[in-house]
Design a protein around this nucleic acid. Structure first.
Lengths: 159, 159
DNA sequence: ATGGTTGCAAACCTTTTGCATCGGG
DNA sequence: CCCGATGCAAAAGGTTTGCAACCAT
């Protein structure tokens, strides 16, 4: 019934705790559906969209309605265990936030692959740049579009 | 009939040339509607959305259909005189690209205001960060969310 | 004359919502 | 038992598309 839930379960303990505490705090209920959706989301692709999530959820329990998935995803966003991501002009994708490991994205416009990275001096430079405008930064989203290593190599060999 | 078209017309010469050259190159036609939509877009708010653009276009020529505006906006995006912008989770907005003056955005989560800025060392830091992953950057989108100066002051005085 | 363009309405896609029923605490 | 949660279908945005008439070249 549940697939691949136990093996990695410890890795997502933090997210689950945050989610269930948020439910409690808001007077919301811990239902079977929400558990299935949470498990599925945490074990899914890193950049999944809601449609794909619905599909996978229904592989586990076909009776779960799409509105339930949407409603649950909105709770994920509210309590901060997921964040929205728009890689290109595509539909929104969801990304689990693992701990506090913030990262930015390199997006290859050739093959569509993405690389997640974190660069400390870049973070610092952003804080400095923002404060020059009297702005107090809280979070940010940086997407760098270009060509990944593989696609550069492929272009070179084909030339 | 046409309002505020002549005064600033020189400021947008580059965009217009790019657009009309793109039309030619693609075998597309220079119609009245496209001219009105282009004028309106270039003179509109910097972060206009399509609905607002349709409204303004229809103040000039109420017979222009919404699909024509959408289709024309898509041409703007294709030929590069406009770019998409999603400030928060809101609907997409359009931003005219004036020359090559790239900029990033500071977005205040209190009042929703945005500041456009450009910071050279930030640009350099991004190129360095990308190249560490063998990635060849072409363009990027940086949005920093936080609190603007005014909202910080307001919060201080209210406390 | 020809092939792209337009306006209209309908279709589309993603997300939200109203409602009667269900179920967790 | 109560109130929130669910599934369904419908509604609600925002954007695209099919089509017959239109118009720029």
């Amino acid at each position: 019934m549940r697939e691949a839930a136990e093996p990695k379960s410890d890795a997502f303990r933090v997210q689950k705790e945050i989610f269930y505490e948020y439910l409690d705090k808001q007077g919301l209920k811990r239902t079977q559906q929400r558990e299935v959706i949470l498990e599925t989301f945490l074990h899914a692709d890193h950049h999944i969209n809601v449609d794909q999530l619905i599909e996978r959820v229904r592989q586990i329990d076909p009776t779960i309605g799409q509105s339930t998935v949407y409603r649950t995803v909105n709770i994920f966003l509210e309590c901060g265990i997921a964040q929205e991501l728009r890689l290109t002009d595509e539909t929104r994708r969801l990304e689990p936030i693992i701990g506090n490991r913030h990262h930015d994205h390199l997006i290859c416009t050739e093959c569509g692959s993405t690389i997640e990275f974190f660069n400390c001096s870049l973070e610092v430079a952003q804080i400095i740049a923002a404060s020059k405008h009297g702005f107090k930064p809280a979070r940010h989203s940086l997407k760098i579009y270009g060509t990944c290593r593989n696609c550069q190599l492929r272009a070179d060999t084909q030339r």
